[in-house]
Design a protein around this nucleic acid. Sequence first.
RNA 1: GGCGCCGUAGCCAAGUGGCUAAGGCAGCGGAUUGCAAAUCCGCCAUCGUCGGUUCGAAUCCGACCGGCGCCUCCA
Length: 514
Amino acid sequence: MIRVYNTLTKTKEPFEPVAPPKVGIYLCGPTVYKPSHIGHMVGPVIFDCVKRYLAYSGYDVTLIVNITDVDDKLINESNARNMPMSKLAEQMTADYMRNIEALGVDVIDRFPLCTAHMTDIIDLVERLIERGYAYASEGDVYFDITKAAEYGKLSHRPADTLMGEGGGMAQRKRNAADFALWKSAKPGEPSWESPWGPGRPGWHIECSAMSRALLGDTFDIHGGGLDLVFPHHENEIAQSESATGKPYAKYWMHNGLMQASDELGKVGGRQTRAREGDLASQEEGKISKSKGSSAFSEMLQNFSGETIRFFLLSTHYRRPIDFSEGRIQEVETGLETFYRFFKRFERVTGESFYSLPAATLRRDGEFAPGDDPLLKTVAELRARFLEAMDDDFNSGGGIGALFDLVRILNKYVDEQHLEQPAKQDAQKLAALRQGATTLRELGLTLGIFRTPVEAPGSDQGSELVGKLLELFVAIRTEARKNKDFAMADRIRNGLAQLGVTLEDRPGGTEWTIG
RNA sequence: GGCGCCGUAGCCAAGUGGCUAAGGCAGCGGAUUGCAAAUCCGCCAUCGUCGGUUCGAAUCCGACCGGCGCCUCCA
């Protein structure tokens, strides 16, 4: 049974969809006014993984990620760039799409645009006015906070702290904490026609309108970053439940926020605590800021999408995660253990790890280990992985089981001497293959080990380079045969200087570039 | 000020009442290797501090110390 931590109740609850086997998930997506940074990738990767795991568990999952393509920040940025808002949105959306694709995020079913749902939005606002939850005021429309009895139930804040501090309150509002459903357009601003005059939607209403249009009045999981709990999600609940009289999302899942601890990962231009009066650190802050938050696309030049994905999944999604280049390099080193095993598997069996027919459904991945000690352990580790994932998608714990799995498979190849063809037999190879297939099956639920990964900037060289290397290897093999180790080492060291690694194995010498 | 989160080995991190506290990175010792690389084996933590509850706590409660978040349209 899968259990999910629900922000609404602050507990882990058994996952029981509203209308099984269907599961609807709505994730708050990006406001497309600037290139995405690593922080924007956390949600997509996590919920991509959540969908994969739920689908693997037998659910029929629909995952929606909205694109906010009209908003104050977009208006400001498009003015600053002297570019139409729609064009800016288009460019930044394209950047976002490239980035999530590089991370292997490709199970999102729909990316609704706010601007494409104006009718739904306006309908919802009208409905709220009709029901007495909202009021029009000089071209704006506000939600009347005092009408939502349960306001504050998600963020668990006492009502009196949510009623605003007064001062600076817009004249048009009844209560300081009332929030805009519709904002009238100032001259020159992009606008849409509405019963209250030309304007644009407030920030919160689009999610209520689009989730309702695509997933219905009540759906299963609503996700987003922890920073959205208040006010955004609190307001969504107020809007949707007031408009429909039905429960909105059943489970609220919030991911922890990325903390940048070096320049590459700098999030949103946020400063890492510049102490008061500390000129040096303030200067540093300015430099960082002027350089801007690093675009995620830059990071992809240094690391593969799979490495970054593995990094994001290596800890629990609710925990804040520290980003640094060193951190990512560490997980990359760990990932390489898997890649080496995949190559080894292919050397031993002649079969590509990536073409193993892994089960896509949990029940199909079950197998009878019989008396085989290897398969018994494989089955245990599989169970451990699933147990971790069942417990609120604990991918960090699951990855631990994966490392154990690859180790026992390596050990099996060692102990059974499977790298030597003479020592192979069909039964042992079948056991190894079952273990590798399980490894792939579990990796796929995390969205990893799908296809061979090429490290960014890796250069496998031309055909000529390949042939030259083969020649060097052949010469060296002969030298080793003749016990001319000085020559053998000279070749290996010389190639190492050029970035080519030679490894001597039972079946011959293997070379890799990079 | 209000609400909340976190503090597990050198670094990262799983575990949230009971077997020997997962796993990764780094390090050390060993097997293997002509030597390496890779792989495997072994070593490396009593869980921020203090107090309490309990037969029993890293896990529950309290205080304190230390990090951090939100309350201001950042995912």
